[in-house]
């Protein structure tokens, strides 16, 4: 039987969700009987191939995040928003309190100890969106896995349910936003 192909990525996130994913520990070994990874920080594949499941951690804070998210949406049959940042902006969205100009000035011009103060403008650097946004404001999202991060058990449950062709659900005790 063909293995179910899974891609994962972290946009504006802290990789905490990925760490939690790896917290599946030895259960991951069992899962690998049934799944294989496409693009993921775990294997360093750079682009998302056509996949069954895409797990996206992190919010959208720059143009590159948007490109990656779109690539995932185009290639993944099922797209899952993982964690608080992907779902409502989370900690990265705390910068929405300030204008982008205030943020960049603080980081690159006004901060004490900055030498050669200038706002980086190399074309290699993705431009920042004026505000940080959750995923569902830009693409359709199929499932949501709340938590900061969602516990390893939540990853096990959602993937196993999907593998078994069930509508994924979580035991209520592990539905948390924190």
């Amino acid at each position: 039987m063909r293995k179910v192909r899974v891609a994962t990525t972290s946009l504006a996130g802290c990789f905490g969700c990925h760490m939690s994913f790896l917290d599946m520990d030895e259960r991951l070994v069992g899962l690998l009987e049934h799944i294989e990874f496409s693009r993921s920080p775990i294997n360093d594949i750079k682009h998302c191939e056509p996949c069954d499941i895409g797990l996206v951690e992190g919010a959208l804070c720059n143009a590159d995040n948007v490109h990656v998210l779109r690539e995932f949406r185009q290639n993944c049959k099922i797209l899952i928003a993982v964690g608080a940042c992907a779902i409502n902006g989370g900690v990265p969205a705390m910068r929405n309190h300030f204008t982008l100009e205030e943020c960049l000035n603080e980081a690159f011009l006004d901060e004490i100890g900055v030498d050669n103060p200038h706002i980086p403008n190399d074309v290699e650097i993705p431009l920042l969106l004026s505000k940080v946004h959750p995923l569902h404001e830009v693409v359709h999202v199929d499932y949501y896995l709340p938590g900061c991060p969602p516990p390893a058990d939540a990853f096990v449950k959602i993937i196993t349910d999907l593998l078994e062709g069930k509508e994924p659900s979580l035991p209520r005790e592990i539905l948390h936003y924190d």
């Binding site: 143009a63 948007v66 204008t99 982008l100 100009e101 960049l104 706002i119 980086p120 403008n121 074309v123 431009l127 920042l128 969106l129 004026s130 505000k131 830009v138």
Partner: peptide, 14 residues
């Protein structure tokens, strides 16, 4: 989305 980059374009002159 494109408008959302406007401020950054202005600040970076890109």
């Amino acid at each position: 989305l494109d408008k959302s980059l406007q401020e950054a374009r202005r600040l970076t002159h890109r």
